[in-house]
Nucleic acid binder design. Structure first.
Lengths: 146, 146
DNA sequence: CAGAAGTCGTTTGCCGTCTAATGAATGCGA
DNA sequence: TCGCATTCATTAGACGGCAAACGACTTCTG
């Protein structure tokens, strides 16, 4: 059980749980805030566009959007010019969550990094960038195309 | 969209995908290697014990064990003295995967950290430890007991 | 010794995520 | 213009996770 992978995994899970906890306070499920963030930035996007931005597959966005539509955060509407497309539009409720959720998220980031100095944070970001690049490269290797 | 949480999330996903890729090569699904690792270290453990070690809930282990039993990696057997307990025992197949999977995992760790100097790795681990502690503390705060 | 309380594994149901298959609409080439 | 390839969203099914409800067995207590 390699040290880094192990520690990273545990950290990941803890962060995930903390984030989930925070979102739940606003009636959201983990992951939904990302979808909302995409729409806050630009409303009326299509599932495919959102999936690409969130680095997630389209079915994931579709399912999540279905649940979120059911809970009144957004609505689905077909694009008038191109009927293949579906556009997601935020409801009042969806917009209303913007401030509280963004604050929650900023607070979480700050709370979690509280014990790190500025220099430590810089090094951490650099290291994660490198790891991200390396891991992504590994994936491209094993898959025929990407 | 805070920088750190965002980068960490992306890194996490990339690592997860890379690990999944590697495990798939040995016919395993992501996560099953952890359960196997627990049994390699000590065979005949109970679902509850394994769940605690993997920091996962018992139902997660139970489900995973069911699938792994179906694919012949382990067998279920009730404890003779205490009939509430169930013990999981590795099959030949389960033991056979040990070397290749542990190697795979070590290789992944090394590949992913390849661009980091020794000092960078140390700083990274320290930083992750701090973050892990902070995130865990946040969880304990919000939950009545733990 | 018998009932109450505690300890386990299992089942159920939901969420996020992925891959693969399906279906509808557009657009391009002959 | 007509058909076929392309582009989208959706559905189906699998997996890892979690929380809550359930059921079986053990242990503690009166």
């Amino acid at each position: 059980m390699p040290e880094f992978l192990d520690l990273h995994g545990r950290t990941s899970k803890a962060l995930r749980a903390a984030a989930d906890d925070g979102m739940r306070r606003h009636g959201l499920h983990l992951g939904q805030n990302h979808l909302l963030a995409a729409l806050w930035e630009r409303d009326g996007r299509t599932p495919g566009e959102i999936a690409a931005e969130l680095r997630v597959t389209t079915p994931t966005v579709v399912k999540m959007a279905t649940r979120m539509a059911a809970s009144g955060l957004l609505t689905r509407r077909r694009d008038e010019r191109d009927n293949r497309l579906v556009r997601l539009w935020l409801t009042e409720e969806g917009w209303a969550l913007r401030e509280p959720v963004e604050t929650e998220r900023r607070d979480l980031e700050e709370a979690v990094l509280a014990d790190l100095t500025g220099a430590e944070r810089e090094h951490l970001m650099t290291a994660l960038e490198k790891i991200h690049r390396a891991a992504t490269a590994l994936l491209k290797d094993s898959r025929s195309a990407d």
